Amino acid sequence: MSGELSAQASASEQGYEGALRPTSLAEFVGQSKVRRQLGLLLDAATMRRHTPDHILLAGPPGLGKTTLSMIVASELDKPLHQTSGPAIQHAGDLAAVLSALTPGEVLFIDEIHRMARSAEEMLYLAMEDFKVDIMVGKGAGATSVPLELSPFTLVGATTRAGLLPNPLRDRFGFTAHLEFYSDDELSQVVSRASGLIEFSLSESGVDEIARRSRGTPRIANRLLRRVRDYGLVHDLPGDASTVQAALALYDVDDHGLDRLDREVLRAVVERFNGGPVGLSTLAVSVGEESETIEAVVEPFLVRTGLLSRTPRGRVATRLGWEHVGVEPPTAP
């Protein structure tokens, strides 16, 4: 009996997760300019009865690139095939995916900048002419056989658009640059999600979660679920005090910094007198990998003005000193 209840709870939770994703541009919160541009592109393609131009979605993680790809397929009323750049390590992998597409299908490639170079070169021809050349045989007897493809729309997502080669980037008819959300937009995200997971939040509770979500809807939804769990276990209402207590338990402070963020900032201020300090030295001092500091921690600290990157290393700003609670040194 307990197993059946557990399975039902798990299925219910998965249902909530799926329900948090908007299914149309009208439901999608934020990115107003991108929504208008994308809506025009899809409406025009529908009126012309043609497949839309290929779409590139660029921006930091958690801003809705995958959700927008699903919305594109939903708005076109076409199936969606999802894959990722790291999964396509050979031209044959891409050929297998492309040859299986049905007419008008939407192909979503996440982290498209991590595809193998040979697959990228095959993708050039597929995006322009909807065909690929398959090599049959080996050595001097190898021959190239053209394979016609059904018309499709490619939606590529990347967190590092600068790593895409120019020939691939130029073949996208529309490039959308997703930006971080404002607190007001995140409040709308949290309010909508709280209704979907059936957890009542006060306006102050909604704003408290939004303020700590680092401009990212994915983080807002994650914090909302942790607050819901805390309120459920302790039988507390979803007000600001419950949000503060729950996020204090999970080491998320008023500015959205977590334990590792504060460790890095405190190390720069207290161990290295505000910097400059090199990335590898800083990583060793907090016991983390350099890649984690550079890709996960540093972007948010720099964006919020707590840390600065200089040619000599990382330097704590005046705001960074104040956040740690240490008086910054007086400039000579």
Rank of each mutant, 00 (worst) to 15 (best):
A220H: 02
G85W: 05
V286P: 04
R303D: 15
F172L: 05
V106T: 02
D258Y: 03
L123C: 13
H255Y: 08
T216R: 11
Q31N: 14
R222C: 04
R214L: 09
G64L: 12
P217R: 14
S99R: 15
D53P: 05
E179I: 11
L223M: 05
G256I: 06
D253E: 01
I134Q: 13
R218G: 12
G64D: 03
T330I: 07
S24K: 08
P52C: 08
S202A: 11
R228V: 01
T317W: 10
K33P: 07
S74P: 08
D170F: 09
S32M: 07
S204V: 08
S187R: 00
S6H: 10
R160F: 10
R21G: 13
H234V: 05
R228W: 09
V277M: 08
E185L: 00
V155N: 06
E198T: 08
S10Y: 00
Q244W: 06
E263V: 03
T317P: 09
F272H: 13
G3N: 09
D253N: 11
P146H: 00
V252D: 01
L201I: 04
Q244L: 01
L94I: 10
D235S: 15
A44T: 11
V145Y: 03
R222P: 01
A73R: 00
E121Q: 15
T66A: 09
G156K: 08
L186Q: 01
V97K: 07
V106A: 06
H50I: 14
L41G: 12
H177C: 07
E128L: 13
R21V: 13
A140S: 10
T66E: 01
L42W: 03
G104P: 03
P328A: 11
T153Y: 08
I293W: 01
G313D: 13
P52K: 06
T281L: 06
A220Y: 04
L5P: 05
P52A: 10
M115Q: 02
I88G: 02
A220R: 06
L186P: 00
S24A: 15
S241T: 11
R228Q: 13
K33H: 15
R21T: 07
V136G: 04
E289C: 10
L196G: 07
E13V: 12
E121T: 13
H113I: 13
I88Q: 05
P329L: 03
K131M: 15
V29Y: 13
F172V: 09
L260G: 04
V286S: 09
V324E: 04
T242F: 13
P165C: 11
L38K: 13
E288I: 11
G18Y: 03
L20G: 09
G278L: 14
V243E: 02
D261V: 06
G59T: 06
V326T: 15
G139N: 03
H50P: 01
F199K: 08
P79V: 02
G92F: 02
I88Y: 02
M47E: 13
G92W: 01
V268S: 12
L306K: 15
L196F: 11
L306Y: 15
T310V: 06
G15T: 03
T66V: 07
E270W: 00
S191T: 05
T304L: 04
L56G: 04
E185G: 00
G231W: 05
E263T: 10
V227K: 14
Y230I: 11
P329E: 00
T67V: 09
V132K: 00
G62S: 04
D207A: 06
L40T: 13
V132D: 12
L257F: 13
